[in-house]
């Protein structure tokens, strides 16, 4: 029974969503505390939020910052990672630095960066960029390192320049691994986005979420949590589809969805 259901893609997650909502509703009714409104009350706020122009603008602001941060990270991190993978010298140059900044909570840099760049878009985009870059560099590095040497030799023998080899062989060959990095990066981008907006409350979803918490609008708090959750799930799903199209030739890489900040 369960396996026939699982054959329909999208159905099991949908059932899981409904089950989670049911659990929430039941818990709210059983415990009956102020801080946990029943699911249906929070969900009733959804159309109100999504219909509100200002709230939509906030959400768009967040998504825009995230997109810019991710795009910048892609542009910088992938070349660096690929070079690290192909050159021992570059790898030796960057590795200790990356290992040192790896455990720094990027969103916690926000108060300091705010001092320099203000509370506007620049500092938030920078924090997102930093958060996304590290896993991207790491995975591009791993991908480029695993490229079959013989292919590079053949390409060199055919007269390809080093740059051509990097773009035409190393990049496509590392693509599956890079996608693992992008997926991790997306999760991180979302976390960093919410946290940075929470610290510098000026606009965005994190701003609505924590302001409504401070104003004790609990229905809105939970509705925003649902919206951010949906945003995360949809991004992940869309990304999986894209990955499946672009690197259909590669075996699905087993990966651990990481959520570092």
């Amino acid at each position: 029974m369960t396996w026939r259901l699982a054959a329909l893609p999208g159905l099991p997650p949908l059932i899981a969503c409904l089950a989670l909502l049911g659990l929430w509703e039941a818990a709210a009714r059983i415990f009956a505390i102020d801080g946990l409104p029943p699911a249906h009350e929070a969900l009733r706020q959804l159309p109100a939020i999504l219909g509100d122009r200002e709230a939509l603008l906030h959400i768009l602001d967040s998504v825009r910052r995230m997109a810019i941060g991710c795009a910048l990270a892609l542009a910088v991190a992938v070349p660096v990672g690929l070079l690290m993978g192909r050159s021992r010298l570059v790898a030796a140059f960057f590795n200790p630095l990356l290992m040192t900044i790896y455990p720094v909570p990027k969103a916690a840099l926000m108060p300091i960066i705010m001092l320099w760049l203000g509370i506007g878009d620049a500092s938030k985009t920078l924090v997102i960029f930093l958060g996304v870059s590290l896993p991207l560099i790491y995975h591009s590095y791993q991908g480029a390192r695993a490229v079959e040497e013989k292919m590079l030799w053949s390409a060199a023998a055919m007269g390809m320049s080093p740059l051509q080899r990097l773009v035409r062989i190393v990049l496509p060959a590392s693509l599956p691994e890079i996608f693992v990095g992008v997926r991790t990066g997306l999760v991180l981008a979302l976390i960093t986005m919410v946290t940075s907006e929470m610290i510098a409350r000026q606009s965005g979803v994190g701003n609505i979420l924590f302001n409504s918490l401070d104003m004790a609008l609990y229905d809105t708090v939970y509705a925003m949590i649902v919206i951010i959750g949906i945003l995360g799930f949809v991004l992940d799903l869309g990304f999986e589809k894209l990955r499946a199209r672009l690197v259909a030739w590669a075996e699905p890489v087993h990966q651990i969805a990481v959520g570092t900040t």
């Binding site: 969503c17 989670l20 999760v187 979420l209 959520g259």
Partner: peptide, 9 residues
């Protein structure tokens, strides 16, 4: 469903 949700939210 839950893994890609940013938990900080």
């Amino acid at each position: 469903v839950l893994a890609p949700v940013p938990k900080i939210a």
